[in-house]
Design a protein around this nucleic acid. Sequence first.
DNA 1: CTGTGTGCAAACTCTTTGCATAAGT
DNA 2: ACTTATGCAAAGAGTTTGCACACAG
Lengths: 142, 142
Amino acid sequence: MQRPVEHKAVGADISRLLRRARLRPTRQRVALASLLFGNGDRHVTAELLHAEAVQTGERVSLATVYNTLHQFKRAGLLREIAIGGQRAYFDTNTSNHNHFFLEDEARLVDIPGDSIRVDGLPEPPQNLKISHIDVVVRLVSK
Amino acid sequence: MQRPVEHKAVGADISRLLRRARLRPTRQRVALASLLFGNGDRHVTAELLHAEAVQTGERVSLATVYNTLHQFKRAGLLREIAIGGQRAYFDTNTSNHNHFFLEDEARLVDIPGDSIRVDGLPEPPQNLKISHIDVVVRLVSK
DNA sequence: CTGTGTGCAAACTCTTTGCATAAGT
DNA sequence: ACTTATGCAAAGAGTTTGCACACAG
């Protein structure tokens, strides 16, 4: 490889990634994982990912895309983001960060991990602990 | 009713509320509004509200509950909260505040309006402005 | 009366599931 | 070979819509 490669995983890397997650590197999983992890952070819906896969000539069903997204999520490769509406969004960046949601385009954009700070959090009710804090900054056109 | 009434709006109050929102105070709307606004802040799903209405002997269809919730939302009487999953939650407290979400019970709990502060918000991308910031603190049992 | 609201059922969207077939190891 | 994954179609939630009837003003 001559070109600088940053967060890019290809071929064998993808297979290793899947094996580590105890998922057989099947043709479909490799294809989907390549789309997801092959080129930086992404935010996808099942339908979007399916459309992309089909467009690159991959034979994969929507049901398999759903199954695969949930498998990846369970394996910690993806995080699911609650936006409302009824579409589920998945984020390839599983580190702690938050999101802009562009209402007009129904699109998510990362907010760098450490820029937002949430203060003044009250104690959770008894016997409960914080699992995760979601901050979604909703944007509309001016 | 003989008992002391606090933040309770009844009968004529509900009608006035609806009229102000330019919604005819029909039997169903009055019934739903009473359940929603008759006794402090609430977080409801369409199905929950429908079940309550039916339980109090009100004849109202689920479709009308959905329609009514959206009318109330458009009128600014309710706010919709994005939790994920595919259920839509509506909050009768439309002021600026945030939520605990109890994952185990799929239930929302208010976090008092001014306790949480979000700092370090980056500038929104050009031509966009912040419409609203949602903070959801997800809780699981210890 | 007149127009708006409601109920019902059907349609729609997104998502999950069951089961026979295909593919990975 | 043995096991797990996939595809398809069908089912399942939650939600929305179209149209005839009912009701508020």
